[in-house]
Design a protein around this nucleic acid. Structure first.
Lengths: 250, 250
DNA sequence: GCAATATAACGTACTACGTACAGAGTTTCA
DNA sequence: TGAAACTCTGTACGTAGTACGTTATATTGC
C-alpha cells in the first residue's frame, strides 16, 4: 500500500525547505548536493518506479552519494515528500478567463493530468498540507475560478474542494487500474478471464442479477472492467451541473 | 503512508478465503484458529491502531500464537486484507424504497459512516476488487438504487461510481484530518497557530489575497482549517443535483 | 496397538526500510 | 595555525513480510 505521511518536525526547517531560502554555508567542505537536486531525483524515482521504490538509499544511489548524506539537506523522508508534493503543484496552470464553468473544467482536467504524470501523489497522505508557494498558488487559482459568480467565501471554498476532490477521486481509480496492470503484468480483461471461471464455482449469478447484467454490459462496452476516462468525463459533467444549479439559484 | 496492495496470489485460494468455504482438515492436530478469527482480530487491530500497526506479528500476538501460524490459514497479508475489506462491506445496509435520491443519499451516508468506523479502508489500495460476497452485494444494492429511473446500464454504473467515489473522497479528507490530530497530538487550530507565525516570515499575504481571505473566513466559521462534515453535506447536495439534471433530461 | 501420513505450530533467518550516532575529512575565520 | 563549522560516510538498531525446515499432534489403515 505504500502510504507516506507528511512530517511533524520542526516547522521552521520544513518551511525553509519548501520556500528554498537556505543560504550557502560559510565554512566547511563544498556541498556536493542541493535540496533541489535531491527533490528532483526523488520525483524522478517516484515517477518511474512508484512511491514504494522511493527509499533514501535509492535516492542516494541516484545521486551517487551515501544514504546518510541526504540528511544533510533534508530533515527526513516525510519533509522531503512535502517538498516533492509542493513542487509538482507548480506544474498546474492558471485557468482561462472565459467563465466559471470553463475554469472549473480546466482545474479538474489539470489535476487529473497531474495525478497521471505523478501517480505517487495519490499515495501520499498529507497529514497537513505542505505550506509551500505552489500549494498556496494552487488554492488561489482555484478560488479565482469561482470569484464573482455570487457565491459566499465559504461556498467558494466548498466548490473548489468538491471539484478537486472529484478529480483526485477519479484519477485514483484510473491510476489504481494502471498500477494493478503494471504490477501484475496482466490486463483487467486477462485478470477477469482468469478469475471468472473459478468465481463461477462459488457465486450464483442469480443472486446478483443487476450486477451481473451491468457489469457485463460495462465490460463489453469498454473492453475492460472499468473505463476511468469515461468515468471522469461523466462525473465531471454531473458535478459541474450540480454547481450550476447552485449558482443559478443566486 | 502505509498503503497495502491486495494480492496477486492463487485465485482459488483467495476465493475460498473470501467465501469461507474451507472444510475442516481430516487429520493432524486440532487447529487452534480459524481464518474468521484471524480476520476479526486483524480488523480489530486496524480499527484501533491503524493500518500501519497491522503486522502479522501483531495479529499473532492478539491471538496468542506465533506469527508464522497465521500462514496456515491465510496465504499472506495481501489476501488477508482483501478479506478484511469484504467483511466490512457486509456492514453496509440496503437503501430505502422511497425514490432514487433518498436511496443515493443513503448510500453516500452509509459509505461515509463505514469509512469512519474503519479508517484503514482508505489506506488499502485495491489492485483489483476483492471478489467476495459482500462486495458483490454492495454493487448490487447500489445499482438497485438507480434502477428504473430511465438510465442506461452504463449510466447506472457511472452514477453509482460517482456517488460512492464522492463519499470516499469526502471521508478521506475527514479521516486524514482526524488521523493527523491523533498522530501529532495537536488539533488543526493548534497546528495552524504554531505554523502561522513562522509562515509569516516567508510568505507575503498580498500574493494570495483570495486564499488569505477565504481561508481565514473558513477558519473563523468552522473553528478549524477544514470542516469535513460540512464539505460532505455540501458536495453531496451538488452531486445529487447534478444527477437530477441528467435524470430529468430523460 | 502401531506405523504412515497429513496437518498445525514454531524458530530462525533473509532482505529492506528509516535514521541515530560517531567519526573522519574539508574549508574558512580569527 | 588552531579552532570552529560543515559535509560525508559506515555501522548499527528495530521492524517488516515471509521462505524454509523442524517438531508436535491427530487420524487412518493395517
Amino acid at each position: 500500500m505504500t502510504t507516506e505521511y507528511s512530517g511533524a518536525g520542526d516547522p521552521r526547517r520544513s518551511l525553509e525547505l519548501l520556500w528554498g531560502v537556505r543560504e550557502a554555508p560559510k565554512r566547511g567542505p563544498k556541498p556536493r548536493l542541493t535540496a533541489e537536486r535531491i527533490v528532483r531525483a526523488a520525483i524522478g524515482v517516484a515517477d518511474a518506479e512508484g512511491l514504494e521504490a522511493l527509499s533514501m538509499r535509492r535516492i542516494a544511489e541516484e545521486l551517487d552519494v551515501s544514504a546518510m548524506s541526504i540528511y544533510t539537506y533534508v530533515p527526513g523522508k516525510a519533509e522531503l515528500i512535502d517538498v516533492m508534493v509542493d513542487r509538482t503543484f507548480g506544474e498546474l496552470t492558471p485557468p482561462p478567463g472565459t467563465g466559471w464553468r470553463a475554469r472549473l473544467d480546466h482545474i479538474a482536467r489539470d489535476n487529473w493530468a497531474l495525478f497521471h504524470r505523478h501517480p505517487w501523489l495519490l499515495r501520499v497522505t498529507l497529514a497537513r498540507p505542505p505550506m509551500g508557494p505552489n500549494t498556496f498558488a494552487k488554492y488561489e487559482n482555484e478560488l479565482r475560478a469561482v470569484e464573482g459568480v455570487g457565491l459566499t467565501d465559504l461556498e467558494m471554498d466548498s466548490v473548489v474542494a468538491l471539484v478537486t476532490g472529484f478529480a483526485e477521486s477519479a484519477a485514483r481509480v484510473s491510476v489504481n487500474a494502471a498500477e494493478a496492470e503494471r504490477r501484475s503484468g496482466i490486463s483487467d480483461m486477462q485478470w477477469w478471464e482468469a478469475v471468472s471461471p473459478v468465481l463461477d464455482t462459488f457465486v450464483n449469478e442469480d443472486d446478483y442479477p443487476l450486477g451481473t447484467r451491468v457489469g457485463t454490459a460495462a465490460g463489453m462496452e469498454y473492453g475492460s472492467a472499468i473505463a476511468p476516462g469515461r468515468a471522469f468525463e461523466f462525473g465531471l459533467a454531473r458535478v459541474l451541473d450540480g454547481i450550476e444549479v447552485l449558482i443559478s439559484s443566486r
